[in-house]
């Protein structure tokens, strides 16, 4: 098992390196430059290019970037907050996005699993239909519509929660964005749990457990859920990454200075260093999550665990 994990970690590092290189090449291909502006002359643009070292060949810049990155230096912003250290910009905003995303994931997982399990246990009853309808609406109504509805009714009309994000009461003012963000994950997880659980409950080993006389709830937790979780975790991984790296629309609506908004602006402004940093944070989270999912697989599924130990 240890050998397997070590091997996976090394491969992940290599993958990250490749992603970074690809990102660098993509940035180079991006249309426009950070300095396209009505008020700048060509001569000034050339000066800026030279000043930031963008006139050097791609590979030189790439290795310089890698070298600086190991020192924790992600370069400076060219367009969003000129000359700001990107590492600082990303660090400040990532924390908030992780907070909102984490809350949303928690809500999404709890409600998603509950809805899914309930629907599967009462398969083909009205509860099942209701749960299905909720999850279908959850994915077909965009999160920004839910967000504005919540703002209007919960915050504006009922005055229960603040409308905008507020640094004075970060937790309270992040509840609404987290709920709005969690709608789609709830629906996805519920839907997936339901169909997975129905599959598991129809399988022969559950029939065996049942005939052995294991109590209902014990059977559901110990046997059905455990086997349901394996594929569910596969879906949850990418959802988690997407939530943690911020949603630009939700951040826009609630005025949250998060990383999702930063990345969109960076792409629009062609701010290379910021775009690469944001994208790399995303990649890093994604790769780490995938690594965890793969390892968790082994822990939850005895068959895979044994197979890996045999390696």
């Amino acid at each position: 098992m240890k050998k397997y994990i070590l091997q996976r970690v090394l491969i992940s590092l290599a993958t990250l390196f490749v992603i970074l290189l690809v990102l660098f090449i993509l940035m180079d291909l991006m249309p426009g430059t950070p300095f396209n502006d009505e008020k700048l002359t060509q001569a000034q643009k050339d000066i800026l290019y030279a000043k930031y070292g963008l006139d050097k060949p791609l590979l030189t810049r790439f290795f310089l970037y890698c070298k600086n990155m190991l020192k924790g230096d992600l370069g400076v912003s060219y367009a969003i907050n000129k000359n700001f250290a990107v590492s600082g910009m990303v660090k400040d905003r990532l924390g908030i996005s992780i907070a909102v995303g984490g809350m949303a994931m928690l809500i999404g997982t709890v409600f998603g699993l509950l809805l899914g399990i309930l629907a599967a246990l009462k398969h083909n009853s009205w509860i099942d239909n209701l749960c299905s309808a909720i999850s279908v609406f959850g994915v077909s109504i965009p999160s920004y519509v839910c967000a504005l509805l919540l703002c209007y009714f919960v915050a504006y009309r009922l005055n229960w929660l603040p409308i905008l994000y507020n640094t004075d009461q970060p937790f309270i003012s992040l509840i609404l964005p987290a709920i709005a963000l969690s709608v789609s994950p709830t629906a996805n997880i519920a839907r997936f749990t339901r169909s997975e659980m129905i599959d598991v409950m129809n399988s022969d080993y559950i029939l065996l457990v049942e005939s052995k006389g294991v109590k209902d709830w014990k059977m559901i937790i110990g046997h059905v859920l455990r086997n349901t979780m394996i594929p569910v975790i596969t879906v949850m991984g990418p959802i988690l990454v997407n939530l943690l790296t911020g949603s630009s629309v939700i951040e826009k609506i609630f005025g949250i200075p998060g990383i999702g908004r930063l990345m969109i602006t960076a792409i629009q402004e062609n701010d290379y260093n910021v775009t690469i940093a944001c994208a790399f944070v995303y990649s890093l989270m994604y790769i780490i999550t995938m690594l965890f999912v793969d390892i968790l697989y082994g822990v939850i599924d005895p068959r895979i665990r044994i197979a890996k130990e045999g390696d």
């Binding site: 504005l148 703002c151 209007y152 915050a155 504006y156 409308i163 905008l164 609506i253 005025g255 200075p257």
Partner: peptide, 18 residues
């Protein structure tokens, strides 16, 4: 100065007096 792009939440915030 509060940075906010969405005009609809801004209007609600205005009407709430904040």
């Amino acid at each position: 100065f509060r940075v906010l792009e969405d005009t609809q939440t801004a209007l609600m915030e205005y009407e709430s007096g904040n």
